[in-house]
C-alpha cells in the first residue's frame, strides 16, 4: 500500500499576499490577537472612564467621550494589526487624504455641524431640559436632545424643532434657566392726578404678598416716565426662573386689581385741549 502524502502547503500556503505585503498565518493570528486585545482594551477603558470620569460629566459629554474613547482605541488597534502585516500605508494615506478633501468639500456643512456640536459640548450654553431661545433662528423651547449634528427642541407650543448645530453654535442663545432667578418687568401707567407714592406703596404691598417674589434682590418700583397720558411706573421683581411665566401673569393682574380697589385711575390715552380766550368754544356753541 502506497503512502499518501498530502502537501498542506498547497492547501494552506505558508505565505499570503495582502495589500502588497507577504504575510504568514502566524502573523495573521498575531494581528487578530492585537485587534482582539484592542477591542478588550477599548471596552475596559470605556468602562473605567465612565466610572471615574463620566459620573462627573453631563449626559451629552459623557456619551461623546464614551464614543471617542471606544472607537479611537478600535481604530488604533486596527492600524496596529495591519502594521504588523507590514502593510504599507503610504499610498493608502495619500489616497485617504485626497478622498478626505473631496469628502470635506462635499460634506462641508455636515462637518461644520459636527465640529459645532463638539464645541457646544465644551462651551455648554445649554443642557437637556433647559428652556432656551435660539435668537437668530427665532426658535424658543425646551432642549430635548443634542446630537452630533443637530439640536432638538420642544417648542413652547408643543411642536418639535430640529436645528443644525452650526446654526445654534453661531447664534445668540438665551438660556432662561442658567441663573436661579429672573426678573419680571412691566409698566403701570397711572393718572396725573393720582398720588404716586400711594400707588407705589400699593404695588410694593402686592409684591410683598406673593411668596415667589424674592425679598433679596429686592423688588424695584419707580417712576420711569412722565408720558403724554399717564405717569408710568416701572415694576421690577425677581422670581425663581421656574415661576417666571406664572408670576408675570399674576403680578400684572394683582397690581391692576389692587389699584382698582383703592380707585387709582389707569388712564386711556388722552389729550387736554385748551382753546384760546378769543376763540369760540365749539362745544359751548353747539
Amino acid at each position: 500500500m502506497g503512502t499518501v502524502v498530502v502537501d498542506f502547503t498547497s492547501i494552506f500556503p505558508s505565505k499570503f499576499e495582502f495589500l502588497g505585503a507577504e504575510i504568514t498565518p502566524l502573523e495573521i493570528l498575531i494581528s487578530i490577537a492585537i485587534f482582539a486585545i484592542g477591542v478588550i482594551l477599548a471596552r475596559v477603558l470605556r468602562m473605567t472612564v465612565l466610572r471615574y470620569v463620566g459620573i462627573h460629566l453631563p449626559e451629552e459629554t459623557r456619551r461623546a467621550v464614551n464614543r471617542v474613547v471606544y472607537w479611537g482605541i478600535i481604530v488604533l488597534a486596527g492600524l496596529a494589526a495591519l502594521s504588523n502585516q507590514g502593510v504599507d500605508f503610504t499610498g493608502a494615506l495619500l489616497g485617504a487624504g485626497i478622498f478626505a478633501i473631496i469628502i470635506g468639500f462635499a460634506t462641508q456643512s455636515l462637518v461644520a455641524n459636527l465640529i459645532s456640536g463638539l464645541f457646544m459640548q465644551i462651551d455648554k450654553p445649554m443642557k437637556i431640559g433647559d428652556p432656551v431661545e435660539i435668537v437668530d433662528s427665532n426658535v424658543a423651547g425646551v432642549v430635548t436632545e443634542v446630537t452630533a449634528f443637530s439640536t432638538r427642541l420642544r417648542m413652547f407650543d408643543g411642536t418639535y424643532a430640529r436645528l443644525p448645530n452650526e446654526k445654534v453654535f453661531t447664534s445668540q442663545i438665551r438660556n432662561f434657566s442658567k441663573n436661579i432667578a429672573r426678573r419680571v418687568e412691566f409698566q403701570v401707567g397711572i393718572g396725573y392726578k393720582e398720588d404716586v407714592a400711594q400707588a407705589i406703596a400699593i404695588i410694593n404691598k402686592t409684591l410683598y404678598e406673593l411668596p415667589m417674589v424674592l425679598v433679596e434682590p429686592a423688588p424695584n418700583v419707580f417712576v420711569d416716565t412722565l408720558a403724554e397720558s399717564s405717569v408710568n411706573i416701572n415694576v421690577f421683581a425677581w422670581v425663581p426662573w421656574q415661576h417666571w411665566f406664572l408670576m408675570r401673569q399674576q403680578l400684572v393682574e394683582r397690581v391692576k386689581k389692587q389699584l382698582d380697589t383703592v380707585g387709582v385711575e389707569l388712564p386711556y390715552p388722552q389729550r387736554v385741549i385748551w382753546f384760546a380766550e378769543t376763540a369760540k368754544n365749539p362745544l359751548k356753541n353747539a
Binding site: 441663573n179 436661579i180 411668596p211 424674592l214 433679596e216 434682590p217 425663581p240
Partner: peptide, 16 residues
C-alpha cells in the same frame, strides 16, 4: 402665615 424667599449670593451662583 406668609412665606418669603431670597437669594443668598448672586442670581448666577447663589442659593434660593
Amino acid at each position: 402665615g406668609l412665606q418669603y424667599y431670597a437669594i443668598y449670593g448672586t442670581p448666577e451662583n447663589g442659593l434660593l
